[in-house]
Amino acid sequence: MPSLDEIDRKLLRALQANGRITNQDLSDLVGLSPSPCLRRLRQLESAGVISHYAALVDPAAVGLTVTAFVRVRLDQQDDRHLAAFEKAVDGFPEVMECYLMTGDADYQLRILVESLNLFEDFLRHKLTKIRGVAQVTTSFALRPVVYRTALPL
């Protein structure tokens, strides 16, 4: 991982706040002329510090009103079973995040769907059909309290 100086951190903070900022505005914000600013930006991209650019879409605005947090325990935790589970959930568009966990559950997933009926379909016809799933526990989010996409730099 490259060592980040304060200018790099300013660049990253500015881009996290507005990914569509122009290079001119970005260079003004961080105190560089446009060419060195763009060069720094390209270095951050090639080093993998900036992995990609995306638009943040409001889930409710596109009808995805149900957020479920699902904890999954597998019947076996060897590499083969872990890899099979991870490959399967990677193919489900409803799975927004999946983490390998310590504690009572092997995985925690964040699921977004349009309705409870669609969540039930997801659970019955996709998640519990994955070989090796031993237990599934679900909690539904009532509302977001804190949601951040910007890293604390």
Rank of each mutant, 00 (worst) to 15 (best):
T138R: 08
L118W: 02
Y107E: 03
T102R: 05
Y147V: 15
N23I: 12
A61M: 07
M101P: 02
K87E: 11
P2Y: 05
E120I: 05
S139F: 01
L116S: 10
S33P: 01
I7P: 06
F122Y: 13
P152S: 14
L116C: 06
L127N: 13
G132Y: 03
Q77T: 05
R42M: 12
L112N: 04
Y107R: 04
L64Q: 09
L142T: 01
L44Y: 10
L32W: 03
P34C: 00
Q16V: 06
L32T: 07
T138D: 01
L4Q: 00
R13Y: 10
D58P: 03
R73V: 08
Y53W: 14
I130P: 12
M101Q: 14
A88H: 06
Q76W: 11
T65W: 08
A55S: 00
Y99R: 15
F69P: 01
L29D: 02
L29E: 01
P34V: 14
M1E: 06
V30H: 07
R143H: 08
Q135Y: 10
D104C: 05
K87A: 05
S27N: 07
R40V: 09
D8S: 02
V146I: 15
V113A: 04
G63S: 09
V30F: 03
P144A: 14
L56A: 12
G48Q: 08
K129E: 01
A84S: 01
T138L: 08
P144S: 15
V62Q: 04
L11G: 09
S35H: 13
T67Q: 10
L26F: 12
R73M: 12
M101V: 07
L41E: 11
R42I: 09
R20L: 05
P2L: 14
K87L: 11
L116R: 13
A47D: 13
R80D: 03
R42Q: 12
E86I: 09
G91Y: 06
T22G: 04
S35K: 14
F85M: 02
R9P: 07
A105H: 13
H125E: 03
Q135F: 00
Q76Y: 05
V113P: 05
V133H: 02
